[in-house]
Amino acid sequence: MLAGIAAGLGAGAFWGTTFVAPLIAPGFSSIDLTVGRYLACGLLSVLLLAWTALRGTLHKPTWSQAGAALWLSVLGYTGYYVLLVLAIQAAGAALPVLIIGTIPLAVMLLGKPQGLRWRTLLPGLLLTAAGLVLMMRATAHGMDGSATAQGSLAWGVFLAALAMASWTAFVLLNARWLARHPEVNSTVWANWLGVAAGVGALLIWAVAGTPLAELVARPGFGTFVLVCAVTGIGAAWIASVLWNMASRRLSASLAGQLIVSETVFGLIYAFAWDAAWPAPVQWAACVLFVLGILASIQAHR
């Protein structure tokens, strides 16, 4: 159990780096950062699969397994991020981020083991919900009423809800798939998902991405490539391996609780980058998140 918790927290630590990626490479769009991230992940996955093939240890997926990797990569990787980006473009950043913040609660509620009583899970749920409420207050405080300049607020909220449902479904279905296929280890599965995500990124780039010549000509292109490489290897591939390990060792409800660590780490990185201290309400929210994780761990023992 401890190994699964450590893996889940490690995944959250890597996912949190995506919070600061736009701050480090501000001259590039979210679509370009998403495409670059998953292209880097896909390239690494292809190289690792080629290495295993040269060593004669390549585990080839069946058609069914390849189809599952493609479908789940859309749910949890490229499809999810495209929905989120479109939601932010339509409604501004604040509301979509708040909606996405409910994912840990949704996963905890839908992934509760049959033998676990609700009353034992309730403290962790309440602490996490209280932390989300505080974080929502802090986020809503910065809204300026101009969020709908690029589109319809209602449409953006709808897209954000779809993104939330997409990633929630990915967490639950990915855990179920791993449980049914113990012969596929976490690293192999991460490679298959990475290749599928790389293919999806190419399709997104062809439809909505910035032409390569224009990207190269922009100031800070080298930083952009570095950010994509770091988030593609860390926040996509390594985080995927760690999350697969956590999903195999923990119930979906406990793994869902650990998702809030992404927010905690993301805030730490963002404030460190800006050389600023969080507001008291954000400190309080992070404390509640940590207490919620500890309460959920206790409930699942």
Rank of each mutant, 00 (worst) to 15 (best):
A3H: 12
A3F: 10
G4V: 11
I5C: 12
I5G: 00
G10Q: 06
A11L: 12
A13H: 00
V20E: 02
A25E: 00
G27E: 09
F28V: 10
F28E: 06
F28A: 06
L33M: 15
T34R: 04
R37Y: 06
L39F: 04
C41L: 07
S45V: 11
L47H: 09
L49G: 03
A50P: 08
L54W: 13
H59A: 15
H59K: 11
P61M: 12
P61A: 09
Q65G: 02
A69V: 06
A69P: 01
S73T: 06
V74H: 04
V74R: 01
L75F: 15
Y80Q: 11
Y80G: 05
Y80H: 12
A87F: 06
A87C: 08
A90M: 03
A94P: 01
L98R: 02
I99T: 02
I103D: 01
L105P: 04
A106D: 01
G111R: 05
K112T: 09
K112H: 02
W118G: 14
P123L: 08
G131S: 05
L132A: 08
L134V: 04
M135V: 00
M136A: 15
M136F: 14
M136R: 00
R137M: 12
A138K: 08
T139P: 02
H141G: 07
H141A: 14
G142H: 13
G145Q: 12
A147Q: 14
T148P: 01
L153H: 05
L153R: 04
A160W: 03
A161I: 13
W167T: 12
L173C: 01
N174C: 12
A175Q: 15
W177Q: 11
S186N: 12
N191P: 00
A197C: 10
A197T: 10
G200N: 13
A201C: 11
W205N: 10
A213C: 01
A213Y: 02
L215W: 10
V216Q: 13
G220C: 02
G220P: 07
F224R: 10
T231I: 15
I238A: 14
S240T: 15
V241K: 07
V241C: 08
N244M: 09
A246F: 01
R249K: 15
L250R: 11
A252S: 15
S253C: 02
A255N: 13
E262K: 05
V264C: 02
V264L: 15
L267G: 13
L267A: 15
L267P: 00
I268M: 12
A270Q: 11
W273C: 00
W273N: 01
A276K: 14
W277E: 03
V281Q: 14
W283C: 09
A284Y: 02
L294H: 09
H300N: 13
